[in-house]
Amino acid sequence: MRSRPQRVWDHISVYLPVVLMGMLALATWWLVRSAPSAPSGAQEPVRGHEADYFMQGFSVKNFGPQGQLLSEVRGEMGRHYPDTDTLEIDRMRLRAQDAAGRVTHASADRALSNADGSEVQLFGNAKVVREAVPSVRGQAQPQLAFEGEFLHVWPQLERVRSNKPVTLTRGNDRFTANGLVYDNIAQVLELQGAVHGSLVPRKSK
C-alpha cells in the first residue's frame, strides 16, 4: 500500500504543467528577438536600467505546422531592458493547448523573462490552471491549479521554485506550503515550511 506522501506525489507530479512555461518562454524569446535593433555602426548611448522599446495591448500567437493555434500570450504593457536583455510584461495572460488537446491557462500581474526564455519569473497572483479533460482511457482528469504570489521557473530544466506561499489544487484535493522546490526531470517535489493538505476520497461507482 502506498504511503500518503507517495499518493500526494502521484497526484501532483504527473500533471504539473511545466510544458506551459516552455510555451511562455518561447513567446517571450520571440518578442525579444523580433524587436527592432539599432542600425549597425550607430553609437549606443550609455544608459541605466531603462527600456529601449515598449509594447502596449499586445498579443503574440504561436501556430503549429497545420495552422492550429498552440499558444497565445497577451499583455497590457511590455518593456525590453537592454542592460539586462530582459522582457517585462504587465498583466500577462497565456492560453496554451498541447497535442492531446489539453488546455492550460497562466496569468500573473507581472512576468519577467531573460533573453532566451530559459528563466521566467511570475510576480503577483501567479497562477497556472490546466482545464479538466478526459484521459485516453476515458477516465476524467480533474482541473489542476498551481498558484502563488511568486513562481520562479526554468522551463528547459523543468524546474519550479518559490520562496512564497503556494497552493496546489487538483480537483477537490488541496495542498498549501510556505515554499516549493520542484524538479520534474529528477522527479523531486519538496513542499517547504508549514505544509497542509487535504485529500478527498473518490466516490465509488
Results as ranks from 00 to 15, higher is better:
Asp85Tyr: 02
Phe63Cys: 01
Arg93Leu: 07
Arg102Ile: 03
Gly57Val: 04
Val46His: 09
His105Ala: 01
Pro45Gly: 03
Met77Leu: 15
Glu50Pro: 00
Asp116Phe: 02
Gln66Ile: 04
Thr104Glu: 09
Gln66Asn: 13
Val60His: 04
Gly101Met: 10
Gly64Pro: 01
Gly117Ile: 10
Gly101Pro: 08
Leu31Pro: 01
Ser34His: 04
Gly117Ala: 07
Gly117Met: 08
Val60Pro: 00
Leu31Phe: 01
Leu122Thr: 01
Arg91Phe: 00
Leu87Ser: 04
Leu122Glu: 02
Thr84Arg: 13
Ser59Leu: 06
Gly64Arg: 15
Met77Asp: 04
Arg33His: 12
Asp52Leu: 04
Ala35Trp: 06
Glu72Cys: 04
Leu94Met: 15
Glu119Ser: 11
Trp29Ala: 12
His49Asn: 12
Val73Arg: 03
Gln121Glu: 14
Thr28Gln: 05
Glu72Ala: 06
Leu69Cys: 03
Glu119Pro: 00
Gln97Gly: 00
Asp109Gln: 14
Gly41Thr: 12
Gln68Ala: 10
Leu122Asn: 01
Arg79Glu: 12
Met55Gln: 11
Trp29Phe: 06
Asp109Ser: 08
Thr86Tyr: 00
Arg33Thr: 13
Ala100Cys: 02
Pro82Asp: 08
Gln121Val: 12
Val60Gln: 10
Leu70Asn: 13
Ala111Ile: 14
Arg47Phe: 03
His49Ile: 11
Ala25Gln: 05
Tyr81Ile: 13
Gly41Arg: 13
Asp90Leu: 13
Pro36Met: 08
Glu72Ser: 07
Pro36His: 08
Gly75Met: 04
Ile89Arg: 02
Leu94Asp: 00
Gln97Ser: 04
Gly57Arg: 12
Leu94Ser: 00
Ser118Ile: 06
Glu50Arg: 11
Gln97Cys: 06
Ala42Asp: 12
Ala108Cys: 14
Ala35Pro: 05
Pro45Asp: 08
Pro65Gln: 15
Trp29His: 14
Gly67Asn: 10
Ser113Asp: 09
Leu94Asn: 00
Gly48Asp: 14
Val73Tyr: 03
Arg47Trp: 06
Glu88Cys: 01
Pro82Leu: 05
Asn114Gln: 11
